[in-house]
Structure formats: C-alpha cells, structure tokens
Design a protein around this nucleic acid. Sequence first.
DNA 1: GCGTAACCTTACGCGCCAGTAGGTATGCTG
DNA 2: CAGCATACCTACTGGCGCGTAAGGTTACGC
Lengths: 214, 214
Amino acid sequence: MPALPLPQKRLPRAVREQQMLDAAVSVFAAHGFHHASMDEIANRAGISKPMVYAYFGSKEELFVACLHREGTRLMEAVIRVVEPDLPPDEQLWRGLRAFFAFVAAHREGWGVLYRQARGQEPFAAELAQMRATMVEVVAGLLGRLIAAGGRRYRHHEVTAMAYALVGAGESLADWVVDHAEVPSDETAARLMNFVWLGAGELLRGATWRPVTPL
Amino acid sequence: MPALPLPQKRLPRAVREQQMLDAAVSVFAAHGFHHASMDEIANRAGISKPMVYAYFGSKEELFVACLHREGTRLMEAVIRVVEPDLPPDEQLWRGLRAFFAFVAAHREGWGVLYRQARGQEPFAAELAQMRATMVEVVAGLLGRLIAAGGRRYRHHEVTAMAYALVGAGESLADWVVDHAEVPSDETAARLMNFVWLGAGELLRGATWRPVTPL
DNA sequence: GCGTAACCTTACGCGCCAGTAGGTATGCTG
DNA sequence: CAGCATACCTACTGGCGCGTAAGGTTACGC
C-alpha cells in the first residue's frame, strides 16, 4: 500500500515503532532483505530515515524485530488454541489448524520473512530459537501421546519426529501460500491424516476424523 | 619482470569452470550470497575476476550454476538407487537413505546453498523447479504404493502428502547438518518409520524394518 | 612460423544505500 | 513561560564490490 500522507502528528515512540514494523515487514517481504531499502521503509511508514535508526539501530536489527514480532504472533496464535486438558490428538489438530490459518492469513508477511531468515546468517540464530521452541512443544505433545499409549521412546526419537513434523508443516505452508484457493483447514486435515495414521494406515483405508467439523 | 611464483597453467574452459564452481560453492556457503565477493571466489579458484564473468556472466548466474550443479548431483544420487522394479517401500527407503547420505556428505555445500536460495527471489524459481521434480517423484511413489493397496486417492491428496514428506526431509536434513554425530542412515530410518507407520502405528509398538540391514 | 582464437591479467568506474551530522519543532512539567 | 526531553527533519558521505575496458600471453591449426 502507498505511503499515507497523513498529517504528520507527533506520535509516541511505541506507536511509531509499530508503524515502522508494519512498513518494514511489507517491504522486506516484497523485495527481500538486501534489496529492501531503508528509505523505502521509512517512506512507507510516513517518517524519515533517521527515526528508524533512532528506534531500531540498524537494518539487521530492524529485520530481527520484524521476525520477532511476527514469530511471536504465530506462536501465540498456536498456543492459544492448544488447551492442555484436551486429548493429545485434538491438541495436535487444533495446533495445525491454527498454524495453517495464520500462515494463510499472513500470506505476504510471515512466510516470506521466514524464508528470508533461514539463509542469511545473522538471522539464523533468532530463527533457530523460535523453531526450537516450536519443536519442543510438538515433541512434548508427541511424548504425551506416546506415553498415553503405554510405550516409551527416547528423547532423540521424539525430537526427530517433531522435527519432521515441523518441517512438513513449513513445507506445506509454502504450498498454502502459493495455493490461495485451497482452504487452510483442508491442508491442516491432510497433514493431520498423514501424520496421525501414516501411509501404512492410509492405504488400509483408515481416516482420522476431527471432532470439531470443518 | 614479475616472476610468477605459481606456474599459472592455461586450462581448457570446462576444467576452469568446474574449479570456479567449486570455489563459488564454498564461498557462497561460507558467507552467503550477498556477503560473498566475486574477488574472493576468483581468488580461491586461482584465477582473476574477469574470467569468472567471461564464463558465468554475473554473480547471480554463477550462483544459479552452483545450485544447478549441486542439485543435479543430489537428484542423480537419489535416482540412481531407486530401481523401479523394487517394491515401493524399498524404493522409498533407498531414496531416503541416499538423500540423507548425500546431505551428510555435502554438509557445507548443498544444504547451505539450498537454504540461501529459498529466500532470495531470483533463485526461488530454479529451486521450485527442482523441488517440483522431487515432489513428483515422491508422489509417483506414493501413488503406486497406494494403488498396490487397492485404494485410490486424488492427485491433490497424493501431491500434498509428497510435499509434506519432502518438507520433512528438508527439515531433518537441516538437523543432520547440525548433528554430525548422528549417522545419516539413522535419520533416514527414523523418517521412514514415521512416514510409513505414522504416529498411530508407532504408539502401538509397530516398527518398520528395512530389508537391507543398516 | 605465423595468425588467430582463446585464455588471462591489471586497474579502474561508478551506482547504490546504509548510516550520520547537525539542527528544528513540539509538547510536557514545574 | 523556562527548560528539558523527545520527536522529527534535510542533506550529506563513505566505501563496498559488481562489472568492464584495454591490453598481454600461450596454444594450436595450417
């Protein structure tokens, strides 16, 4: 969207910071980190460049701030729906739905930033952090799930499974971004089926059904 | 007058190109696309910059060439072991093994390039191409697998499953790169189990066993 | 041997943009 | 209405590194 030529009211820092982040997210998403210019970001935020530097310090720090804000929002969206009292499969299902819904709703924001960050070294750390949190959550879920079945697995095993699941999620998220016509819940259901039953069960014709209908 | 310490042998184009690619891969992997300098690449290849431009045209094209060479090698490594006459599960298993083995063997090459490319726009296309090929192969495998079980699935379904699988693979590949101590076959086996049996089967204590022992 | 094509070099131009210097306006607090 | 802090601006610069012009040198065909 174009820069809003609004009356240049003096605004408190907290507000301007959010505006800058909004601008930065869309510019970074549009051109990528390196091709994004700070001038454009400042412009779009309806402010001049030195303000951005005053508040965020550097281009890299600004990017990290974007990543952090958007990532936190995603996490919150997922965690909000995963109530610990529900049965594990229901938790997983809800988490997946929330995840894909978020990705679909933030098509041009989160996904793109995320992809960016995985390559560029300075950001990989920040990313790995969030990813690790996510993996931990999922691993916990799988752990309880398996424990409920009376079996025990090594930590390593469960972590690897969680990693695979998170990766599958990311990959399908990419797919969702490019296929706006497919409802995100449908994708969530597909992954749920795949994960829950595995190819072995699937080919025997079994189908996992959500308690809450689509 | 300037005595050349190194006997700068004149080499045919094909040879030099490979040397340049070798140099480029390691420099790109080390610093990332943008922080890599053409001078350093030329240097490491034991050649001067204009040669690189003469042969590859631009920094971007050079990167694409790297991506292409490495990607092709990966594809070949996987396709080589997947003999069409084998039963589908064996094919899948072999493919996974080859994939993780390749990634582990090219720790500082392929994985890093791959991560880079997903963000930067100009390369996403090239990447998507290879990815699509991979997904297609996997989807074909899954399709035959399911058909063998006597059931039918929509193309969309199978493709999504393939996408999820490929994503899980990529994700675990990252993990493998950071965990050199874990043998790649172990990771392959884990994913195979996960995919093949699904969490549902796993928690009932089932285990898929490879025909060819680790 | 001699021309010519391919290989290879040194040395530089020059756009782009992150980041800054230095200064002005505004509003809050007493 | 001082006086102080904070919001905000215009206008620069420094240098990094991609890409190139112009010119040597070696191999190879004839």
